[in-house]
Design a protein around this nucleic acid. Structure first.
Lengths: 340, 340
DNA sequence: CTGAAAGCGCTTACAG
DNA sequence: CTGAAAGCGCTTACAG
């Protein structure tokens, strides 16, 4: 910067003004400075600027893993939303491991960022104390922790799961299995979505049969396939499956296909998340569209508001994203291969 | 840091020594300092450390989009590999747009990082001049640009594509379509994989039929489905499809399923990338395993070597990752649903 | 519109 | 083993 100033025969202040778009600069001065910058190939040193400004322009995004399509697509949306607002995203993979999720809120890497968008999967209400150390802007995603020192963006888990179940009921299904339950858990997406499922059944006057509820700790394709296999091996009668997320539903679909069970002829399947893959599976998968873009945009906006005005002590907000049911072949049956 | 020093009654140098693990410190001194750090809730300011050290500990990773599963899985692998070496990854999405790919190598955001792992999709040999500005460690991924001021990690595109085609030939297929070609392009994965396809056919004494080669600019599921539809609409006779990546192959599979074409009974399908989804599609998709983990690890290692020794002027390296063919239902036919 | 100067919070020769 | 001091490259009151 000093070299640029020397070459342009101005002070460093003037160079700084040009770089930062300070408006009251004579055109000739600006041109001189810009020429010097170009000739010297100068670019600002971010570390120095950040040190001086006390901000980095980086926000953290902590998710379980990018190899899970839902989180990859969420990360994509968050990166775009942040970019629109001039921020850069630093992704942190926690692997849904409790210690790593705790480490993220106070680790070294946190120091790089002005704030954090945080999507824990292993923490529970007992861990809320871990968030007490947070003295920076934080936005929580998901349903693991409520009441932390953070704004919160969630899905309509109960309502959306109820709508998904009602969609299956509307197709005449009565023996609806659930894949992905977490026994004994009172918080988290699993518990809330199961609740929605139960309410829909109750509203329809159908008793909830515990035999229809299959566990799956991790919500991956593999665990969905295993849970589906268990249901079938146990001889549970069923005419529909509600995968508590798309990966589970796709795993269940895979297992049904492997056993030559016709979908949706014999068993209808619905998922949750509307990842891109669901529009291309065979059959295509009905699912819940959870408003991922809206979630990403809202989270970034809430975080930025706190970053830009750290002294603002308005109460923490909770925003619930809209959802919709996407009906595809796995519940409607159009496009089922001939021969089925 | 001064506060910590004051509280521990030592100099800031000593505090710095403790933080950075300098070995020759009296145990009592270390304990005093650590107590002070804990009491004050002190943590180092990254911007200041980076400014002083001239390094940030961040490396950039520029990919087209995270919503493409291959790149999501690649990012996952790169983040893990970098973490093992104490580095943090900053992901940049270019959308496979030429201007954005150019911007990435010299943009503002570049200033945050010590080096860049760069996977362009739109640049070509004519753009090699754009890399002339690079005066920092750079590792290239993919086949768009060779000879830049960078180490380079690639796949065995030609050999792997040839092996994929030979796998189809070994199943008795003779009319093998290709989905995803880029007409007129002489560089890039499309051209190289098409070359491998052609060689396998020539070796088998089969003439290459241009009618079997379908274009698809972007390698997404949607474009794969469209290309497949075009082949079928044109009445091209075929008994196999080689999708130049998995997304294309999954799109083709989707279109075949939609039209009640039996896979692999009537048409065998193979892809390229071995994304996780291929193990769960119906039918499961045969594919080329391109050594993604190895690519990620090698790229991070090469980059770090340059970062750690910027004066080292050993010649730029090119590393080619191993591949293997993964045979699944879409070419072997086990597990095909009854009724087909 | 522009200049001279302080200071953001570290690390690291240099001394002892 | 530890201290005093310079300096990394910016931005920003303060002056003019």
């Amino acid at each position: 910067m000093h070299d640029v100033a020397a070459r342009a025969a101005v002070s460093v202040k003037t160079v700084s003004n040009v770089i930062n778009g300070y408006p009251y600069i004579r055109e000739t001065t600006r041109a001189k400075v810009e020429a010097a910058i170009a000739e010297l190939g100068y670019h600002v040193n971010m570390s120095a600027r950040n040190l001086r400004r006390g901000r980095t322009g980086l926000i953290g995004l902590a998710v379980p893993e990018l190899s899970l399509p839902y989180f990859a697509e969420l990360a994509d949306s968050v990166i775009r939303a942040a970019e629109d607002r001039g921020m850069t995203v630093l992704i942190e993979q926690t692997g849904a491991v409790r210690e790593r999720e705790i480490e993220v809120v106070s680790g070294q890497r946190r120091q790089f960022t002005d704030g954090l968008i945080y999507s824990p999967l292993a923490l529970g209400p007992d861990d809320i104390g871990e968030l007490a150390v947070v003295d920076y802007p934080l936005v929580l995603l998901g349903e693991r922790i409520f009441g932390g020192p953070a704004d919160h963006v969630t899905m309509s888990n109960v309502e959306a799961a109820r709508a998904a179940t009602e969609h299956l009921l509307a197709q005449g299904r009565r023996r609806i299995a659930v894949v992905g339950a977490h026994a004994g858990e009172m918080v988290g997406s699993a518990a809330l979505r199961l609740q929605g499922y139960q309410r829909a059944l109750e509203d329809a006057g159908i008793a909830v049969d515990p035999a229809l509820v299959a566990e799956a700790g991790l919500w991956h394709r593999a665990t969905g396939a295993e849970a589906m296999a268990r249901l079938l091996d146990d001889g549970v009668q069923l005419d529909a499956v509600f995968g508590l997320n798309d990966a589970l539903a796709l795993g269940a679909l895979h297992e049904l296909h492997r056993r030559r069970v016709d979908v949706p002829g014999d068993v209808a399947v619905i998922g949750f998340d509307d990842i891109e893959e669901t529009a291309y599976s065979a059959p295509t998968l009905s699912t819940v569209h959870p408003g991922r873009e809206e979630i990403a945009r809202t989270a970034v906006d809430l975080l930025l508001a706190r970053i830009e005005d750290p002294d603002d002590d308005r109460p923490f907000q909770q925003v619930i994203a809209d959802f919709s049911i996407i009906a595809r072949e796995s519940t409607l049956g159009e496009g089922t291969p001939a021969g089925h």
